[in-house]
Write a protein that binds this DNA or RNA. Structure first.
Lengths: 385, 385
DNA sequence: CTGTTAGCGCATTCAT
DNA sequence: ATGAATGCGCTAACAG
């Protein structure tokens, strides 16, 4: 059907092994032989058979990148950075420099737990060299357990697993290994036995939310609405914890009894921001600031406020999270917390390739930074003190 | 090293062939045998070896999706739609329903021609079942030729090639087939000989830009700045053609001599919009409308205008293109052209899977729609008539 | 430096 | 409905 190694070997007048060596460039081959082979490769338009190669070598050059929502730039930026690290632009024509190239592929889970699991299985089936899971993790115990199983298998199979933007999985309680082999073969454990160490690049979501809330508090805000993301995501929980911590530290008088009433769970999308803002306004028309789950939701909040005839920040202050590119362009420019998504992704990519060794403990935390812009200001003159 | 088919077979007390048949579900197997096998699979935590499977079956379940910029929602939305079509959410637990599942993987070319070629080679090497190329194509003849070669090979290898958001490649002039085989093997041409027909879902960029320009003309604008995207992209060229057509139709008096001076090439990013607007203002301070390359660039244009103390749309009207989600949320809401990216992607996905047969001629053109919002208005009272 | 020899794990004939 | 045999195309020892 297609041109094979043997065809190339025949044409070049060498053995298949030699062709393989030339192509993989991991073994000394005479200059003249090499060029003869390359010529045959080009004349025949030979393209390596990946599956055959992966089978024989017992490894593949596939690296999976899981994202929750590929249409969201938050993930797009990370994915882009990861992929850049893994498949840098080759100066070559693209045809030959392909040897040993890793193929970074991004898989969109849509935030659906089942799909996350499915993709992991599919990637394991492909004998992926590494897997990077990005963004907040679902916190359901059932899913965590299922996820842990997949990741453990992946690691056992020699794949490097890197978390980017999510914390390591909580250690499972009991481990009922299903290995009651009767006549089963006694396979030997592979080389790297130190698979217990999780590798992760995490974000300081807690600190970011805390700083954001403190900023608002220092401006004088006391009635703040908080639009949290989906209830079962690590990202959501951490940010909320940071918010609450700042509130608590400012003293109970700061409205802690109201606080619970002014915290709404929703999505990370624009519509959730819009609807959430409206609901917040309904619950407390006197709210002077709204912290959105992220920049995208913040845009929705702004739209809702405008539609209600409220000015930003004169009447209500608004904050986002992430500092996506458009945050600075919004009108007014959004006060938000910058997460260096690109850097985080790049680092995760390097960790996945094994180009960089993980920090002690395996977990690198990326600092976040408060970006004060035009969407926050002191609350309007209060009708009382 | 890992659990193999044979292990499962041994444990279930059947032959490897039977296990294979159960797993692929494409052959009758007795109920009891099937369940016995499935139990063994679960007990052993068996995961199919993809490469081995692909090698034996001479096909893989990988589907590649190439995008120019994964951090751009324009591509994110399409990729998401494509992937949804290809890997729908399985109701199953994610472990077993994996049989026959296609693995849709998105590859980020970054708009770099070499990377596009590299990815295609990598995908061919993986024996991808299909490849979807999204977004505008680079128009350099050299690249087109190289691309054509890759795509032809891919198709010859049985992969379905679908274009989404870009026109079919121009037919190459001469085809100097490098097949001077001397002792070469005489391979038989595979089954599907009708590979000449390109399959594409294209956007009506020309019509969209034309409508947009007509909208502005009808409002009374005569001095319009046009920020085109990168010079060598099909998308850019088509939109520009539409713009010029509308201008031409409105009559030369509409300022056709100025037109050339007020057309600037740049990128599809926010910075290009910002810088472009400034440059446009420098070339003609009297410009009353700016058509940005896309919504993202339009945001940059708006920022630049604001920074110059100009009001939108009172002083200058601004338009985008694509109608990405944030366009409606911008302040003011952006007048733009809606391209149903999601629908287009979904269709491309189905075409790639062969679930839907391409229209006669192979090319489906997606209609675009003018979305008039708040960023356009009649030009300010002119100092003259 | 290069050729020879064995599989890698699975899908698929062909028998039964 | 199931089993036995064969080979997919390549890499990796091992020789030389």
């Amino acid at each position: 059907m297609a041109v094979t190694l043997a065809d190339v070997a025949a044409r070049a007048g060498v053995s298949a092994a030699t062709v393989s060596r030339v192509l993989n460039g991991n073994y000394p081959v005479a200059r003249t032989t090499r060029s003869r082979v390359m010529r045959a490769v080009e004349e025949l338009e030979y393209v390596v058979n990946g599956p055959a190669s992966s089978l024989a070598a017992a490894r593949s050059d596939l690296i999976g990148v899981l994202v929750n929502d590929i249409a969201d730039p938050f993930f797009g930026i990370m994915a882009s950075a990861i992929q850049n690290e893994i498949s840098p632009v080759t100066g070559a024509g693209g045809g030959e420099g392909t040897a040993g190239q890793k193929l970074a592929v991004v898989c969109n889970t849509g935030g659906v737990p089942e799909r996350e699991l499915t993709y992991l299985t599919l990637l394991q089936r492909q004998r992926a060299a590494a897997v990077v899971l990005t963004g907040g993790a679902i916190e359901s115990p059932a899913h965590s357990a299922a996820l842990a199983v997949r990741l453990r298998r992946l690691e056992r199979a020699g794949a490097r697993v890197v978390l980017c933007g999510r914390p390591p999985l909580p250690a499972p309680e009991t481990e009922g290994a299903a290995q009651g082999a009767g006549s089963g073969p006694d396979r030997s454990r592979g080389a790297d036995a130190e698979a217990g160490q999780p590798i992760a690049v995490t974000f300081d979501n807690r600190g970011g939310a805390r700083t954001l809330t403190e900023h608002l508090l220092s401006l004088g805000h006391r009635r703040m609405g908080y639009l949290a993301g989906p209830a079962d995501r690590t990202t959501t929980r951490h940010r909320l914890e940071g918010h609450r911590a700042a509130l608590a530290e400012a003293g109970a008088g700061a409205g802690s009894e109201d606080a619970a009433r002014l915290i709404l769970h929703g999505g990370y999308d624009r519509a959730s921001g819009y609807d959430g803002a409206l609901e917040l306004l309904r619950r407390d028309p006197e709210v002077t600031a709204i912290l959105a789950a992220n920049d995208t939701a913040a845009l929705g909040v702004c739209a809702a406020l405008r539609d209600q005839g409220l000015r930003i920040p004169e009447d209500v202050s608004v904050t986002g999270f992430d500092d996506l590119p458009f945050a600075a362009d919004a009108a007014p420019a959004l006060t938000t917390v910058r997460i260096p998504l690109h850097d985080a992704g790049a680092r995760a990519g390097r960790l996945a390739l094994g180009l960089e060794s993980p920090p002690a403990g395996g977990i690198a935390t990326i600092r976040s930074e408060l970006m004060v812009r035009a969407s926050t200001a002191p609350p309007p003159g209060r009708s009382r003190g």
